[in-house]
Amino acid sequence: MFRRISKSIRQRLLFLTAGNLLLMGVILANLLSGDDSTTASALDRFGTVLMDAGPNVAPVILAGLGLTGIIFAGALDLSIGSMMVVAGTVFGILFSRGFDPAACFLGCFLTAFVLSNFNGLLIRWLEISPIIVTLAGLTFYRGLALIMADAFIPDFGGSIAVHDDAYHGPGQRYPGQILLIAILAALAWETWGKLPRVWLAHGCSPEACRLHGLKPGLILQSTFFAGGIFLGLAALVDVTNRQNLEPARMARGFELEVIGAIVLGGTNIFGGEGSFLGTILGAFFLYFVGQTLLYADVDLYYREAIQGALIVIVIGVDCALHRRQKLLDELK
């Protein structure tokens, strides 16, 4: 797989690997230089940071793997955060009505899965650019979640408290395992599977795909189908990790975090180029940046601005590096 991907993405993967190692080094140095800690306790805390990274970053990576496939094919889904909120609300409704944990988990997963497929269908039916359809979805689904919560949860006061441990299984007990299986499956699929390559081909030229005998509409739908599975898992892990479900505040800015990880990972936002591995490394990079700021005692108010600036800078530099090639392509 590594040999098949283009040179620029290979460079990006190496950059991200080095960046992640560097950030881990900075966190370790911060822990070691703390006044009140010994080397052993610092190493112990560093181990905890590493062990916590997987579960904390799981929703971003899981949703990111799904969205990467969608972006491969030249589409985009800006409504993933809002779809997760609807999934969380369905979970809350089922919980408040006394359903089994298994039914709640299934309801949450299926909601995200169905909505993702619905987005794909809508893009095909209305023949409108995916960005606009899902920008509308971003606000529509958030409103839908609020309406559903108001209408179907008895005495809903803005949030639903889930204090029963049985309902926190995937999010609190098995997030690492779910993430690991999803990552291995995605990487194996990328290495040996055919469909991700078809998506990339579609991202390069839908017309060429059509002439080759493939059906562009079905290819696009298949990305939203696979994306729905990953998004369902992301919603499940994220929702069951929370003690309180607040539809108005949940997953705000989630789509930006995921798109940031994907673009950092070297995937071209217009499709046709990219890798699942890049998304995984990109998500860890963003997480470790957040952790580094946390351990460096940077004010909470500065964090959002710094992370926003970092995404803009990395994407800006990347686009600037490819600008020459793009202009040359235009001239052809």
């Binding site: 893009i123 209305l126 409108i128 650019s129 995916p130 960005i131 991202g203 839908p206």
Partner: peptide
């Protein structure tokens, strides 16, 4: 011109 399959 933006078909469902067209890239942004």
């Amino acid at each position: 011109p933006a078909s469902p399959t067209a890239t942004p």
